[in-house]
């Protein structure tokens, strides 16, 4: 049997770059199956020389429920900051439906390295 290779552009996994995410909620609201959950808080940062402090969103939680996800890629398409991206590989099976819910720790590993 010849070696089968999953094509690199296969819709297999969705990764998150938390540093690029601004917690704008667009992906959460566009998801047709409501499988993305996001929590954040704001804090004020005063940059040197700035007249006023600016409000920054800090991402606390980001989960995708791959049990419900239909891999449509709308979240990847609508993200204005390219914080979500397809990557190759296979999502792991789980022993419970809840085991298919993945948070930032896992999603960041699936975010493709730049240039891919």
């Amino acid at each position: 049997m010849t070696e089968r290779v999953i094509p690199p552009n296969a819709h297999s996994l969705i990764g998150l770059n938390p540093d690029a995410c601004t917690s704008c909620m667009i992906c959460v609201r566009e998801c047709p199956v409501w499988c993305i959950d996001l929590a954040s808080h704001t804090h004020e940062v005063t940059e040197e020389g700035a007249r006023r402090p600016k409000v920054v969103h800090v991402l606390d939680e980001f989960t995708i429920d791959f049990g419900a996800c239909m891999f449509c890629g709308i979240c990847v398409d609508v993200c204005p900051f390219d914080a979500l991206a397809w990557s190759s590989g296979l999502d792991q099976s789980a022993h419970s439906a809840g085991g298919l819910v993945h948070g930032i720790d896992q999603l960041v590993k699936w975010f493709p390295a730049s240039g891919s």
Binding site: D65, F66, A68, A94, S96
Partner: peptide, 29 residues
């Protein structure tokens, strides 16, 4: 796994594990 795209349909089961025991859930659509 969960009903997937039909999660909001009143006529679709929200996961087969509601009626039979499931040991492995394979994600994907």
């Amino acid at each position: 796994n969960t009903g997937g795209p039909y999660w909001d349909a009143p006529t679709v089961l929200k996961g087969i594990d509601q009626v039979i025991p499931i040991e492995v859930y394979v994600p994907g659509c």
